[in-house]
Amino acid sequence: MPGYKLHLVGGGALVGSALAVTHHCEVAVFDPFTASALMVVGLLASLFPDVDINSKGKHLFYALLVVVDLVLMVQERYQWAAILGFVAMLPAVSKHRGFTHRWWAAVLIPALVCTLPVWFYQLPWQVMLPWYIAAVLGYASHLILDNVL
């Protein structure tokens, strides 16, 4: 069973490759901050399926979420902070290798995360598409390494 380091490498490789290809093919070109943020989303998503157990990956995942959530609250982006908090609680309602280790969760959980801002802020769905793709790729990398996908 791969540990959190291998999951981070897998997520980083898959999301980083996607960013490189989209940039090279000029499908989408992101500024360095956005590209870095997309990479962080992919890395967090690569850890997400295992946050239902006590592990180093879980501690790293929640440490990063605490920082991001605090920054959002300081910036008075309370709805974004609430979305993040809601998603962070999802694994608590599952057993290990429960729904978080299903292929459909890799598609639906990021869709939920990306749909909420569209609903709350009336953002065009296209704005959230890169974030959705980064999350799905990171999540899928975890399932691939665990031989679930």
Rank of each mutant, 00 (worst) to 15 (best):
P2S: 13
G3A: 11
L6R: 14
V9F: 09
V9R: 08
G11N: 15
G11Q: 13
G12Q: 05
G12Y: 09
L14G: 04
V15W: 03
G16R: 11
L19N: 11
L19K: 11
A20N: 09
V21D: 12
T22W: 10
H23A: 13
H24I: 04
H24A: 13
C25F: 12
P32S: 15
P32Q: 12
F33I: 09
F33Q: 12
T34Q: 07
S36T: 15
G42F: 04
L44R: 00
L44D: 01
S46E: 12
S46K: 04
L47V: 06
L47E: 12
P49C: 15
I53W: 06
I53T: 13
G57V: 05
G57Y: 04
G57H: 09
G57P: 05
H59T: 12
H59V: 11
Y62A: 10
V66G: 11
V67Y: 05
V68T: 13
D69A: 15
D69H: 04
Q75C: 09
Q75M: 09
Y78T: 01
Y78G: 03
Y78Q: 01
Q79N: 10
Q79F: 03
W80L: 06
A82M: 14
A82L: 14
I83A: 00
I83H: 00
F86S: 04
A88Q: 06
L90N: 02
V93F: 06
H96G: 07
R97I: 00
R97G: 05
G98F: 00
G98K: 03
R102V: 06
R102Q: 13
A105C: 10
A105I: 05
A106D: 02
V107N: 08
V107I: 15
I109P: 01
I109S: 01
A111L: 12
T115P: 01
T115L: 08
L116R: 00
L116Q: 02
P117D: 07
V118G: 01
W119L: 09
Q122T: 08
L123P: 02
P124E: 15
W125G: 08
W125I: 10
Q126T: 15
Q126E: 12
V127E: 07
M128P: 00
M128S: 12
L129A: 15
L129I: 05
L129Y: 11
P130D: 00
P130N: 06
W131R: 10
Y132Q: 08
I133S: 10
A134D: 03
A135R: 04
